[in-house]
Design a protein around this nucleic acid. Structure first.
Lengths: 220, 220
DNA sequence: CATGAAATGTTGACGATGTCAACACCGTCG
DNA sequence: CGACGGTGTTGACATCGTCAACATTTCATG
């Protein structure tokens, strides 16, 4: 998806040549992993297969990743960065529409999942065995969560979301969008014929907001 | 968890002896798989390890499961059956409290996930590669979903949930509880110190109901 | 430009895995 | 009692993750 060719040709970015050395093996391995996961599932992701796809030998990845888990962790971490980016993109940054911003985060979350299913699976699946050994993973996830918490707090301060423990409300909101995203990614919603993810996302976040809304002042 | 010993001793149920033949290898293999997944993650589930744990040789499982996927599918299918059972248990069956029944389903869903994380992971993870090849999986999942749809429809007919496409509302509800369950199972919520799953489930389903509730008649 | 150290890639090997084919044991049915 | 189907065993093969030893390239020096 991102850069792929454009370096074996003869260009020579600061860290990369052509020929014996690959140029940017870590990037190529991550891309290969994503491709394999997308096309054949996580089970098909093999260090050797990724190396083959990148055009290097079986042991080359070990120059850049301690083990298979480290490669998966890199995928997951990139995913979290893309997630927060997607959320920020989908949310209007105007200060005077906290509810719209909040909703944008939800839509961005679902859009990310639908657009990057391979990332999403690695991020939230159990593929990365020992999460604690890969710092920056929990941190990257925490950043996205913090985004949500801040948005909800802003809504509360504007009187648009009912009072209560902000983190608990955030868990509620996160659960809702995460659940929809997970169901979409796992193909669990392809029951009869409702593949319109965007419409579902709007409906689901809509219900969510009704649930979190502050009680209308009488007569409003 | 379920039966484990109790058959090598000398008892002889209708389909099971002692000695050379195992007695109930399929059951033992499923249990071994669950144990391995619970203790060391899905990555640690190995046909050979399950066979070892069941006390049989490496190739014995192939008498009962076509391949590793088939064993996983059996685990998933059992999981869906336990899920619907958990939902039914948690939901009052009285006809005059459709909202309580609805909420019970949600609580039962989360309770199942918290109580059977290994099942849950296999059910909704991407472990089972080709779901289409294992009928009864989609069907078992569909049954749980149908339960939810019926409950929502009952609420709508009682005027407790707002009108609209029932299936879409069901997706909304399912997303919410599924999201919470997934986050709990993946340990994504162990951020500072909020391990009280039951309380979270109540809070989350509470928000959900506000969101789905029918507009109060004016002055009610 | 020569040169040696640090990066990066390659080859070959080991134990473990999924899976198959060939074989052995057990209980049942005639 | 004897054959047969179901169940379990042994042995083998290709592949996988990973490591050690070796090769090549790049870069910082002189």
């Amino acid at each position: 998806m991102r850069r792929e060719g454009a370096r074996r040709g003869g260009r020579r970015p600061r860290t990369g040549r052509a020929g014996y050395h690959h140029g940017d093996l870590p990037r190529a391995l991550v891309d290969a992993a994503l491709e394999l996961i997308s096309r054949e599932g996580v089970r098909a992701l093999t260090l050797r297969a990724a190396a083959r796809r990148a055009g290097v030998s079986q042991a080359a990845p070990y120059r850049h990743f301690a083990d298979k888990d480290a490669l998966l962790a890199a995928v997951a971490e990139e995913g979290f960065r893309l997630l927060t980016a997607s959320m920020r993109t989908a949310a209007p940054s105007t200060g005077d529409d906290p509810l719209g911003r909040f909703r944008g985060f939800g839509l961005g979350y679902v859009a990310f999942a639908a657009g990057h299913p391979a990332h999403f699976r690695v991020m939230f699946g159990r593929e990365v065995a020992d999460r604690a050994r890969h710092p920056g993973l929990q941190a990257a996830g925490g950043e996205a969560f913090a985004l949500l918490v801040d948005a909800i707090r802003a809504c509360q301060q504007a009187g648009l979301v009912r009072e209560g423990d902000t983190e608990t409300l955030a868990v509620s909101a996160w659960s809702t969008v995460h659940g929809l995203a997970a169901l979409v990614v796992d193909g669990q919603l392809d029951r009869d014929g409702s593949p319109d993810v965007a419409a579902l996302a709007h409906a689901v976040t809509g219900s969510l907001f009704f649930g979190l809304a502050a009680p209308r002042p009488a007569g409003g």
